[in-house]
Design a protein around this nucleic acid. Sequence first.
DNA 1: GATTGAAGGACGGGCAACCAAACCTTTTCC
DNA 2: GGAAAAGGTTTGGTTGCCCGTCCTTCAATC
Lengths: 248, 248
Amino acid sequence: MARRAERRAAADTLTLPSAVFAPVRSQTAFEETVDRLGTAIKLGLLAPGAQLPAERELCARLGIARSTLRQALTALSQSGHVFATRGRGGGTFVADPLPPTDPPSPQMLARWRETCDQRLAVELGVALLAAERAEREDLDALDEVAATLDATLEDFVAYRQADIRLHVGLAEATRSTQLVRAMTETQGAMTDLIAYIAHPPEVLASSNAQHRRLLAAVRERDAMRAVRVMSEHLQGTEHILAGLLPEG
Amino acid sequence: MARRAERRAAADTLTLPSAVFAPVRSQTAFEETVDRLGTAIKLGLLAPGAQLPAERELCARLGIARSTLRQALTALSQSGHVFATRGRGGGTFVADPLPPTDPPSPQMLARWRETCDQRLAVELGVALLAAERAEREDLDALDEVAATLDATLEDFVAYRQADIRLHVGLAEATRSTQLVRAMTETQGAMTDLIAYIAHPPEVLASSNAQHRRLLAAVRERDAMRAVRVMSEHLQGTEHILAGLLPEG
DNA sequence: GATTGAAGGACGGGCAACCAAACCTTTTCC
DNA sequence: GGAAAAGGTTTGGTTGCCCGTCCTTCAATC
């Protein structure tokens, strides 16, 4: 039939991005909860020893049933990230010390470049928007974090934790909850990647110098300079990874 | 007990991003499929009259059961976006003409700034990475799209469709499937926002001039210039929206 | 020292989403 | 006229998730 041929022809007028038919795999509420809480703990956003909200309150905030939340907490407790005490005045607490982080999985390593690309986008957007919207109080707090960073050049674990606070803090300064969430997500992924890489104090010092230049540019509301400094900052880590990891 | 007090104190050493305890709502596979296919159709990535892969193949590609896919196709068929013909040589086809797009929902309009922020991040990342990685063939194809744009200044619907092809095409040039997906997603959201806004030919002409400057910067591998041009390009639409929509 | 209240812990019923595997119907092509 | 290829239908089972209820523990309080 003629109409059939017409239709088939119309299909070929465009090249279709393969992403349209890519697998659709939705995480379960349980998985997402473990991921969110676990990442927050690993990133130090939930400090060791900190108390989580009560189960009955937390499940309401997360919008899930208590049994689902308990599944997640059980998983986190079995992996040693949290522990619970019963009775009045009890609760669920972040473990102290934290369990050793497990090495990055092969598929994580295989997709490291995608992770960096994702991070690049988030950080560039944050840099530009922070330059437009950050309040003075935000920046003052971030300056203090930068000072902390200079004081922890010898201790990579502590440095990395403050580093995360700085980047997440800058995202918060954009007043975009979506960007904050994206930032914590990518920082979690990045932490997995760089945990096992040596970072000599000199490298950390120059990295923090970039932080300071970044904050200065944001303070002066020079968006493009902030973006440029940020991109240089990220390329540092990316080059290190490119040298150590297989092509991805 | 003393240890209890210690623990509680430890909880307050950091300000916790509220995003950590934000609701976790996972879309169902059905919803996500409708969204993906529907967006691809609305954006013109699946051209009117185009044939979708056979159900048995498509559900395999999407990683879902056939019954779930059929739910989604039924929804899209009821909304008039696709239609199906039976028998050998039959199949599921994108409707032609497409049904009229429905006006943006109130909550969509309320979150327009978050949408723009998201888009900003994606587009800046794409601009920078495209400048690093785009091949000459990619750019030649995109130049042709820009020519199409110049030829459709009088017809906003056609212009917008080519506009999407340009932005998505640039994302494809980064070789990051994640960024392509993020780009189609945000373009879908943006389309809902700007569909009902008048775009005089002069505005479209200057917008496409920015496209050309962007492509030129990418071709010369001048990443920062590409980022700057892109940010100016986006601020154009953002200012228009800011003038027409309530504060968000 | 008894009481109480706030916390974690455990169980079962029920619903909705999803999957798997068939089988049916229509249409075209050989 | 039959084989093949497509959408359409049915059935049954599994899992994730929610909701409600009750139990257990134990610091705080009286």
